[in-house]
Design a protein around this nucleic acid. Structure first.
Lengths: 106, 106
DNA sequence: CGAACTGTTCAACTATTATCGAACCATGAG
DNA sequence: CTCATGGTTCGATAATAGTTGAACAGTTCG
């Protein structure tokens, strides 16, 4: 299961991966810590496994997340350091408005 | 020719608009100042007018650029202040790596 | 007015992306 | 080994995005 090197991250690929509401929302939740794939379903409700897996693949191939075996499941985590090294400030700038938008208004 | 209000800018739309290499490169050039549409062609070479107009539409509808009549042509400009107000730091985080990537490597 | 100039819109086509069921693969438990 | 569990991959279809020529619209100049 291939992950791009930190130095090879492509900005347009990262932006594209985060330009989908479901993927952006997941990236936000991953700032809290790693999740198993089963916990990566959108907040609204369950989606088919294959659809979820496709979104994870998009994020992984762009270098936004890491997806590694973890016992009989897999652990999904945000590649914070790699993203910060390659695109300083980007993650904060993208996720902070998304987080405030997600939190309950008032 | 509709432009979204600054308060209505949608993050995923902005990210999507900037996730295309040609559009991202144009956004970079617009940091230098406004351009006429004819000057918005990608650096590599000319593209059909209708294709260029389509990319400008994508950027405009996302709220990244403003496109206003200017004599017999149109002036294209970056909506820096509006973007900064809605998504602080985003533009800098996105364009600074793109700018260094564009400048001659050494 | 009428022609030239600058861009946008339209319509058709192509290409990429999303969605989802079914088949498949690996791991751990019995 | 066998079976259940947790996820990925495959293949087909639907939806969205990109590309482009041609037609159209606004502005300026003669």
């Amino acid at each position: 299961m291939p992950h791009p090197d930190a130095a090879d991250l492509v900005l347009t690929d990262v932006l594209f991966a985060l330009s989908d509401p479901a993927r952006l929302e997941l990236a936000c939740r991953l700032t809290e810590g790693p999740l198993e794939v089963a916990a990566c379903h959108p907040v609204g409700g369950e989606i088919p496994k294959s659809t979820l897996s496709h979104h994870l693949k998009t994020l992984r191939e762009a270098g936004v997340i890491r997806n590694k075996p973890y016992g009989r499941q897999r652990q999904v985590s945000l590649r914070r350091d790699d993203l910060e090294a390659r695109f300083p400030g980007l993650l904060a700038a993208v996720l902070s408005p998304a987080l405030t938008q997600a939190s309950p208004p008032r």
